[in-house]
Design a protein around this nucleic acid. Structure first.
Length: 296
DNA sequence: AATTCGCCCTGTCGGC
DNA sequence: TGCCGACAGGGCGAAT
């Protein structure tokens, strides 16, 4: 489940490898991954260069064009999306082959399987693959000039990484009400990039119960949440992302942040602070883990 | 207007 | 061994 740190890891790994490369050919094998009617536009990308890689929240934005940026390919990895770079000179690297398909061994001569939905043939024999077993991901091709007006991107709040504490607190304060802290953290129009894993981790670090109503949150707790979100995301990024199931970086390797998670996926196990068993329940339609003693 | 719910989708896992 | 239901969940559109 790629959240901000996973998408940023991919962006950082991908940028030096694909920047400036020309797209020789594009193959979209599962059309429904793309906005309807855009298949001809994908074909038309032949000859375009990858000119910039940006990210907002969990969205990766590839700016494409011939010299000047003309279009933006918006990529959302959903639950199990993978974006991997396959360099021409490492095509025989066995380790790479075994890791590229989720965390399992991949079969097939070209590292492509039935879940590889988009392939960019880049100049020099390099390739870029988009793979997504559960197909919750999305591809969207927009004119660069007005891609900011896209309904999908327009509703996003400020990017969660590097967001000023006071801005976070102010936005939370403006939404004080009956909804839960966790519901707000998952709301991409509040801040963009936080998903289920980092929301739970942030709540634990802040000492706040995920189901606590926003109207009962103090300024102090809001500030702690702001810091805890930043801390969780930065740590995730430092560890190249959390590979709980399918996530791999652009190099095909899993991240290591799953080894450092304090609560996510640890329901019933002992709290790292007080050693009491962690609680698990559904909050805001998501599986949620917290410590009933350390989080109030 | 704000919030919740059902749905999309497939691989994995536990129970029988 | 194999079948089957439960589960994972981001975001959208429908319902409340």
């Amino acid at each position: 489940m790629p959240e901000l740190p996973e998408v940023e890891t991919i962006r950082l790994q991908l940028a030096p490898r694909v920047m400036g490369l020309t797209i020789r050919d594009a193959h979209l094998s599962l059309p429904r991954m793309l906005e309807v009617g855009q298949i001809p536009e994908i074909q038309a990308l032949q000859g375009s260069q990858i000119l910039a890689l940006r990210r907002h929240g969990k969205y990766l934005l590839l700016d494409l064009g011939r010299g000047l940026i003309e279009k933006t390919l918006v990529v959302h990895l959903g639950m199990t999306g993978q974006l991997t770079f396959h360099p021409h000179d490492q095509s025989a690297n066995d380790e790479f082959v075994t890791l590229v398909s989720g965390l399992k061994k991949s079969v097939g001569p070209h590292h492509v399987d039935k879940h590889t939905h988009l392939v960019f043939d880049l100049e020099g024999g390099n390739r870029l693959y988009f793979r997504d077993p559960r197909t919750f991901g999305k591809l969207l091709l927009l004119p660069f000039a007005n891609h900011g007006e896209s309904p999908r991107l327009k509703k996003l709040g400020p990017d969660a990484l590097g967001l000023k504490r006071q801005m976070f607190v102010d936005r939370l304060w403006a939404r004080r009400g009956l909804r839960s802290v966790k519901s707000l953290l998952l709301d991409q129009s509040f801040v963009a990039g936080v998903g289920n894993i980092y929301a739970d981790e942030a709540c634990f670090t802040a000492g706040v119960r995920p189901q606590k109503k926003l109207k009962r949150i103090t300024q102090k707790e809001a500030a702690r949440l702001a810091d805890a979100v930043e801390e969780a995301l930065v740590r995730g990024l430092q560890n190249c992302g959390t590979s709980f199931s399918d996530y791999v970086g652009a190099d095909g390797h899993p991240g290591s942040n799953q080894e450092f998670l304090k609560v996510y996926g640890r329901g019933g196990q002992e709290c790292i602070q007080c050693l009491r068993p962690l609680k698990k329940a559904t909050v805001a339609q998501r599986t949620t883990v917290w410590c009933g003693s350390c989080q109030r």
